[in-house]
């Protein structure tokens, strides 16, 4: 079963309370084997980068077994606002 961008987005919203998720299929021919995600969640507040990434990895543990490459960026809503202004 191929993993879809929507599936990843919905799972991150449901399980990590993400208020914004960007998912990009970065596989050479969009064959859903590598993804790049931006996750914005208040649950990241006060947590170091490693812990945030671990939260995402845990949330997508099943999917990551099928995904070959995975890039992620994890921001709090505040950081996300700042980044949008830049």
């Amino acid at each position: 079963m191929a993993i879809t961008k929507d599936h990843i987005r919905e799972k991150l919203i449901a399980e990590l309370g993400a208020i914004h998720v960007d998912v990009e299929d970065t596989s050479p021919n969009r064959c859903a084997t590598s993804f790049k995600v931006l996750v914005v969640s208040p649950q990241f507040e006060g947590k170091p980068l490693l812990q945030r990434h671990r939260m995402v990895n845990t949330c997508l543990a099943t999917e990551l077994k099928e995904i070959h490459a995975f890039e992620q960026k994890t921001l709090t809503p505040e950081q996300w606002e700042k980044q949008k202004q830049q």
Binding site: L49, L50, H53, E71, Q72, K73
Partner: peptide
């Protein structure tokens, strides 16, 4: 001690 993968090193 584990630091992270490529993303984390890049962001650091």
């Amino acid at each position: 001690e584990f630091v992270g993968g490529c993303d984390i090193l890049l962001q650091m």
